[in-house]
């Protein structure tokens, strides 16, 4: 499968590129900065595209799936994970739809649906991309990891539709494994999962 990976400036995205290569998928890394190109190639990206604005078309034309890692970037500031640029997510959803890509995996923050019963407007903004995916008829999966750590991956997780996981954490490596593992897993289509470190092997966790 050829997968466009958006959000490779952070460790999760870097690890996704590596895992894709390990699993013999092809990958297109979409980056915002020319400087990172050699890194992406080294990490195993088949192609690297520098994206200066909203032009995802060329990238998406040849891909069958998108893995979008929404996270804080340098532009949003290290401690402001809630300020992910949801417009950018929406843009890539639009482009993916135009190019008829069916599979869309979005890694989003875990408490994105809190706004249903909270009045935090900032968190509320994050709901929009999630809803758009549902509406547009993608074979989507939304992965909402617990607190991300730099520990090495254990390959074991606990998943749920809405876990009570205030304390839950998961290593970035495990999140990357999850994102790649579920690429062609039909059981995961049209679903949102909360994922934290647990005791079920990742390759089993997402099957009924």
């Amino acid at each position: 499968m050829k997968v466009a990976v958006i959000g490779t400036s952070e460790s999760v995205g870097e690890l996704v590129l590596k895992k894709l290569k390990e699993k013999n998928h092809q990958s297109v890394a979409v980056i915002k900065d020319e400087h990172r190109k050699p890194d992406m190639e080294k990490l195993g990206a088949t192609e690297v595209v520098v994206n200066e604005g909203d032009h995802f078309e060329e990238v998406f034309a040849a891909c069958n799936a998108v893995i979008y890692i929404a996270g804080s970037s340098q532009r949003t500031g290290e401690n402001k994970t809630v300020l992910i640029d949801h417009d950018e997510v929406i843009d890539s959803i639009e482009e993916a739809k135009k190019m008829r890509i069916e599979r869309f995996i979005l890694m989003s923050a875990i408490r994105a649906n809190e706004s249903e019963n909270s009045d935090s407007s900032k968190v509320g903004e994050k709901d929009k991309p999630d809803e758009r995916l549902r509406e547009e008829g993608f074979k989507y999966t939304i992965i909402r990891p617990g607190h991300l750590t730099d520990k090495p991956g254990k390959g074991l997780v606990t998943i749920g539709e809405s876990l009570d996981i205030d304390e839950g954490e998961i290593s970035k490596e495990d999140v990357a494994s999850v994102l790649v593992e579920i690429l062609d897993n039909h059981d995961s289509f049209h679903k949102t999962f909360d994922v934290v470190s647990g005791n079920v092997p990742i390759h089993e966790a997402f099957y009924h």
Partner: peptide
């Protein structure tokens, strides 16, 4: 320089 403008090789993480 910005962090992502640095010419650093962080592709192989260390455990």
């Amino acid at each position: 320089k910005q962090r992502d403008e640095l010419k650093v090789d962080n592709t192989e993480k260390i455990k």
